[in-house]
Simulated scan of single mutants.
Amino acid sequence: MNITRSLLAGAALALGLAGTAAAESHGGPVKAGFIYVGPVGDGGWTYEHDQARLKLEEHFGDAVETIYQESVPEGADAERAITQMALSGADIIFTTSFGFMDATVAVAEKFPDIKFEHATGYKMADNLAVYSARFYEGRAVQGLIAGHMTESNIVGYIASFPVPEVIRGINSAYLHAKEVNPDVQFKIIWAYTWFDPAKEADAAKALIEQGADVILQHTDSTAPQAAAQAAGNVITFGQASDMYEYAPTPRVSSIIDNWAPYYIERVQAVMDGTWESSNTWDGIGPGMVGIGEITDAVPADVKAEAEALRDAIAAGDYHPFTGPINKQDGSAWLAEGEIADDATLAAMDFFVEGITAEIPN
């Protein structure tokens, strides 16, 4: 036990010395800023980004200082918040919602010596990188479970905004639900918000009233979980964070966003003077997307099938968008065995065949 403690102490000392050396070479602690679209206690998207920020502090110790602003509306308010953070002396700023994209671009142009990182966007510059996770991989696993477990054959989906990230997730979940249950239907409600517990709860209740006994969500609060729990006989999936407080039902599994390794890597690059603009899009394999524990509420054979799908995706043996797949209007998209390219997925603006809902303008 003393040897173990000695080794741990030595490792901690080495990490501390490395962090101190990096800070000294940088001229002091690196200041990393975070702009959040929701509150840090939302239990989902923003919560996981903030947990990663805390792990960043834990990793680097005194070599890094972090600041954040929560509940920043997308639009003009975002540009003001990002500008204020830049003026506060931040070395690198992470803006963590799709709707912050244009604001991040505008501020990055004004502050060429600051590094900017935008989550889920696609506009880049010499001092602006983008990063996202392949959430659609997790949606495939959720779709498989949903298709097996629905008894009404109606799966409800609470969608936030009609952007490619959300459309990809709906398509992936539907394709894998349909594969195991040809009779499955998806009913979609657009909430037009990332985080609004009241709207999310209302959407969940409306879907349940329409016969859905499985609810998927691409919104950030735990309100749909609570609504499903109150209704009974409805299953859900955690979104962005595990939401395990609702297990074993209604939450039977989850998609967990793991941003900490990326944040640590990018701040280390600032310290080292090696930071470059890049486009990162990682999934289950690299660990940016995690699949939360599948509870015993899921039958053992379905659980095993879901875990096999997860593992095949992680290993690169299977891609969730593998043909044959048609577009919603019946036109061919992917031929037998053909895999969707990233450019098409990144700009996805169509539903696949079988989904009857429309994508709003």
Rank of each mutant, 00 (worst) to 15 (best):
F186V: 04
A269H: 06
P73W: 08
L334C: 09
S277V: 02
L56W: 01
A198V: 10
V352S: 00
S253H: 11
A21I: 06
K110H: 13
F100K: 01
N258V: 09
D257E: 15
G292D: 12
H26D: 07
N361V: 12
S97R: 07
D183C: 05
V298G: 06
Q268F: 04
T295I: 11
A11D: 03
P29S: 09
H218L: 13
L7F: 15
L15F: 07
A146W: 00
P162H: 14
A315H: 09
T344R: 09
A204Q: 05
A347T: 14
G337H: 07
A304Y: 11
F98R: 15
A52C: 06
D301I: 07
V302G: 03
F161Q: 00
T4H: 11
N127K: 14
M149Y: 06
S132N: 10
G27N: 08
H218C: 10
G283M: 13
H319V: 12
N326C: 07
A76I: 10
V180L: 02
E209Y: 10
D301K: 11
D50H: 10
N153G: 04
F135P: 02
F321A: 00
G292L: 12
Q268L: 08
T120P: 04
K199E: 06
I264L: 11
A228D: 14
Q225E: 02
I82Q: 07
V107Q: 03
L128Y: 00
A191Q: 00
Y36L: 13
P162Q: 14
T274K: 15
R80S: 15
M149N: 04
D301A: 13
G33T: 03
D317F: 03
G28R: 14
W281F: 15
A23N: 12
I355K: 06
H59I: 11
A12L: 04
F34D: 12
M85P: 00
E151V: 11
K199F: 06
A247K: 09
L56A: 04
P360K: 03
Y174A: 03
P299Q: 13
W194L: 12
I339F: 02
A312S: 14
I92D: 07
L175W: 10
A269I: 08
L175S: 05
L144G: 05
G316P: 08
W259N: 02
T120K: 10
I167Q: 02
Y157T: 03
G27Q: 08
G337S: 08
K205F: 10
Y68A: 06
P29I: 03
G330F: 04
Y246N: 05
T322P: 00
K205D: 15
S25P: 07
G147S: 01
T344I: 13
I93H: 05
L207E: 05
D296C: 12
F161S: 01
I264Q: 09
S277C: 01
T249D: 05
A106P: 12
E200Y: 10
R80N: 15
D220A: 07
I256V: 15
A304Q: 09
V267R: 00
A108W: 08
T83F: 05
M85F: 00
E305M: 12
S71D: 15
M124N: 13
I35M: 07
P224K: 01
R53T: 05
I325E: 01
E109S: 15
E307I: 03
V267T: 04
G19M: 01
I167H: 03
W281N: 11
V72P: 00
A308D: 14
A314P: 08
N2M: 14
G43Q: 01
F135C: 01
N258W: 06
I264C: 09
A203G: 15
